[in-house]
Write a protein that binds this DNA or RNA. Structure first.
Length: 672
RNA sequence: GCCACUGUAGCUCAGCAGGUAGAGCAGCUGAUUCGUAAUCAGCAGGUCGGGGGUUCAAAUCCCUCCAGUGGCUCCA
């Protein structure tokens, strides 16, 4: 592959870039960058210009290739289904899609479309650009309301724009595109989905066909292979193979049931977090799962969260809600007695299980269940303690991931308020008539904001507290020398937050940890502390989670390790199998020795053959398989086989000692 | 919630165009006593997601509900 840098050249005016490239002996470019603008290789510059050819092996070239592949898809579809009306077809991170107004297609039809695409590609049809006036464009696409929309929105009345044609197919497009369909041989249609026009539920449904394209078959094959590998790592599949959890879609749709194996894993993670919490001064508490609705009204959850809550009414008429968050429970504990400024910070942690009514279409495995456990923590602080506390939490986050995932790359986001949409947040409102401040009152179920003092509806939001909180987060990040991006509109409804994204072994990024500053919930619950002047002072709350949800974190762990967990968290650490029944006694001795050393050992003294036992235990992913027979019994040794299928023989007590150390150290790698 | 696809034994799946269900694995019983990815034989197991309809006859066709999966951000 030629390096782009080396291929810079000057294209002459009044001839196509293609000709200039040809003269320079450069082949295979699909587009050029001229003066920083992407252009087609058949474009003709009006003056000499330095250009850089774009090849499909580069990210930009791949984008061009996939964009053209999307056109090819639309061409094939319109050829097969003349009534189909293409909307839009952009490239995506690993492929492309095209949204088309048409009847839904099934798998067979998808294959036919792909076949036709390949046919057109093999004919190497020339892809040509034409410039049309707005009127011509509107005429040309008069049968397609989606294109009309785009033309109306994007082309000025007196202006013009371009279309690309390949054979009979013409698409309204800015380009650039590959010069001919011959570049689009390595393609694959992947799936059919549906989407609303402009993602608006009130608009028509469109069929979205996903596909991907690569410069050559080798790259395509590799992609498809990786895709299959990723599917093999799916936590739902491995979760079943390892018997970690089940879902019962009839009795409790969306609710995970932990089996003994799965609960071992969850407990290991819980214990890890418990240790970390203790080390950093977070006291463990436990709170109810059900509360009267009063608390949810007071906390502000009802205003924002009610549609996502499980609610019920008892025969006596009292209304209850199952907790969607743990904060009010911790507030109730904090509020039990007045606190002195000397006692702060008070920090409570809880592996708190919460329940959220997720809409049916949004559930999925462990990543979006209706019940999940948060490694939740709430700190009650003085204003001057915020920054140091945030920094300490960042330390906990780093320690957690380096222990559990090695050294994954972490990225930090600062999610701040969208000041144009104050109705989404708990905010201080000030009455323009009498100056009264109302904190977070917008959270009550009433739609109209009314001044409690003068009954005026003339209230304006005051962002001072939000700005303060946001500044504290910024300072903590800066002092830790962490680079971050700011996302307006992504804040929690009660305050700004820092989100931490973690990249897993498959290169996918997950939002796990979160640190949120909250000025409002303490106000809603009337929390205060006694300052050094014996006066009431405002308590600041910090919400934080490191794993986020245990369920989602476990899903990520399963996929990250493909189920082959570090030994300390593996549900089955050792699987002991005798060569034959004759050695059951020795196998039992080995097992009991392991077991009494707190190793999770399973003895299989069933009647099956050893080969079969090993075969069938594989999907359970034991950290070590221990085989014992005559040789081992006589020598007091064990024959071990690790996760990588490496075998060796060693003394039983040595094995136990080294295994215990591996477990105690939370070692990521196997020591044997 | 919306759209598409799917729902047959514990698991993975077969049952083409309607004639009241099959396989492998797992399970159970028996034989086998075995050196690192399936020893052999036999047995048992399903009102085909629920309900309704069409039909002489429905796993199969239609309606409806439930559930699972993929999407519903990338806007020529």
């Amino acid at each position: 592959m030629p390096k782009a840098e080396e291929n810079k050249l000057v294209a002459k005016a009044n001839r196509t870039f293609e000709e200039s490239l040809k003269e320079a002996g450069i082949k295979g470019a699909v587009a050029v960058i001229a003066d920083g603008v992407e252009m087609d290789i058949r474009d003709i510059p009006t003056a000499d210009v330095t250009i850089q050819p774009v090849f499909t092996q580069t990210p930009l070239g791949l984008e061009v290739l996939r964009h053209s592949a999307a056109h090819l898809l639309a061409q094939a579809v319109t050829q097969l289904y003349p009534d189909a009306k293409p909307n839009a077809g952009p490239p995506t991170e690993d492929g492309f899609y095209y949204d088309i107004d048409m009847k839904p297609v099934n798998q067979e039809e998808l294959e036919q479309i792909e076949k036709l695409m390949k046919e057109i590609a093999s004919k190497n049809v020339r892809i040509e650009k034409h410039r049309l006036s707005k009127k011509e464009l509107l005429d040309r696409f008069s049968h397609n309301p989606y294109k009309i929309d785009k033309i109306v929105e994007n082309v000025e009345d007196s202006g013009s724009s371009t279309v690309y044609s390949q054979g009979d197919f013409v698409d309204f497009c800015r380009g650039p595109h590959v010069p001919s369909t011959g570049f689009l041989r390595s393609i694959k249609l992947l799936s059919v989905a549906s989407t609303h026009y402009k993602a608006d539920e009130s608009r028509p449904m469109l069929v979205r066909i996903y596909g991907t394209a690569f410069p050559d078959d080798k790259a395509l094959k590799e992609y498809l292979h990786n895709r299959e590998e990723a599917i093999k790592r799916d936590h739902r599949r491995i979760g079943q193979e390892m018997d970690l959890l089940v879902f019962n879609s009839e009795w409790a749709p969306g609710f995970p049931f932990y089996t003994p194996n799965g609960f071992v894993l969850k407990n290991e993670l819980t214990n890890f977090m418990r240790g970390l919490n203790i080390k950093h001064g977070w006291q463990e508490v436990a709170t109810p799962h059900i509360f009267k609705d009063l608390i949810w009204k007071q906390s502000g959850h009802y205003a924002k969260y009610k549609p996502n809550m499980f609610l019920f009414t008892l025969p006596d008429g009292d209304n209850y809600g199952v907790k969607p968050m743990n904060c009010p429970g911790h507030v109730a504990i904090f509020a039990r007695e007045p606190k002195s400024y000397k006692e702060l910070p008070v920090k409570y942690s809880e592996a708190g299980t919460v329940y959220r009514y997720e809409k049916s279409g949004e559930m999925g495995g462990l990543t979006r269940p209706r019940m999940f456990t948060v490694d939740d923590g709430h700190a009650f602080l003085r204003l001057d303690q915020i920054i140091s506390e945030i920094k300490d939490i960042i330390t906990m986050i780093k320690e957690t991931y380096s222990t559990i995932l090695g050294e994954p790359s972490l990225t930090f986001d600062l999610s701040v308020i969208d000041k144009d949409a104050p109705e989404n947040y708990l905010i201080t409102y000030r009455c323009k008539d009498c100056g009264t401040e109302v904190e977070g009152r917008k959270t009550s179920m009433t739609d109209e904001m009314v001044c409690p003092n003068c009954s005026s509806q003339n209230l304006e939001p005051d962002f001072t507290t939000w700005d303060q909180a946001t500044d504290q987060l910024r300072m903590a990040l800066n002092e830790e020398e962490i680079s971050y991006t700011e996302n307006p509109g992504e804040a929690a409804f009660y305050g700004p937050k820092i989100d931490v994204h973690v990249k897993d072994a498959l290169g996918r990024s997950w939002q796990l940890s979160t640190i949120q500053v909250d000025f409002f919930m303490p106000t809603n619950f009337g929390l205060y502390y006694i300052n050094s002047e014996s006066k009431h002072d405002r308590v600041i709350m910090l919400h934080r989670a490191i794993f986020g949800s245990y369920e989602r974190f476990m899903a990520i762990l399963i996929e990250n390790y493909a189920g082959k967990f570090p030994t300390w968290m593996a549900p089955m650490q050792v699987y002991v199998v005798p060569v034959s029944e004759k050695f059951n006694d020795y196998a039992r001795k080995v097992h009991e020795e392991l077991f009494s050393n707190n190793v999770r050992s399973i003895l299989d003294d069933s009647q099956e053959t050893m080969n079969k036992k090993i075969k069938t235990v594989r999907p359970k992913r034991p950290s070590y398989i221990v085989v014992v027979g005559e040789k081992e019994e006589e020598a007091g040794t064990v024959s071990i086989r690790n996760r990588e299928n490496k075998q060796h023989v060693m003394k039983l007590d040595e094995f136990i000692a080294s295994l215990k150390e591996e477990i105690m150290n939370h070692s990521l790698e196997q020591t044997l």
